[in-house]
Amino acid sequence: MSGLIAPVARLIEEFSKLPGVGRKTAQRLTYHMLRAPADEARGLASALVAVKEEVAYCSTCCNITDRGVDPCAFCADDRRDATRICVVEEPLDVLAIDRTGEYRGRYHVLHGAISPIDGIGPDQIRARELVARVAAGGVEEVILATNPNLEGEATAMYLADLLAPHVPMVSRIARGLPVGGDLEYADDVTLIRSLQGRRQVDLS
């Protein structure tokens, strides 16, 4: 970049590769780091390196785990129901579902969803690992909790086909109205989906 000394230009370049960071934001971040104490820069640098060097993937569920901790804490926890596997796209989704306290089974992290535009097919996500794990037996239900968008649905359909021969039940998380929401403010698609996914009133 013209008029900038090399280290500054390089840092701007690196920052602007990050998702959601444009050139101006990258410049702002760079000048912030210039003004910040050296400790802060070192702290950031070592955190960045650590995230690559100290994070590993669980050989069972493919979720991220501390290096040397395999299987991960979720898979090693015997109190968790091993007969159910909840399949999600990203590690953050595991935290979201687990926070609810409603689900106490195991997880499987795909690290993405099928999206031909982005060159992501079944081989680019951790689908094969999931099928092998389910085919090994002992699983009663696989819950497909990929995102309710086109790519998430494509992934769910693909996995459902592959998993069906190996497990008694493959389920898909429900779609519909948000809790505490107002019917009249819901968009058409959400309303249609919630009508399609209606259930008999449980009188018990």
């Binding site: 999206s115 031909p116 535009i117 060159g119 097919g121 086109l150 790519e151 494509a154």
Partner: peptide
């Protein structure tokens, strides 16, 4: 247009 973009990408792949 989203479905077509994905489908065409897959056909090319």
């Amino acid at each position: 247009s989203r479905v077509l973009a994905q489908r065409n990408a897959l056909l090319r792949a």
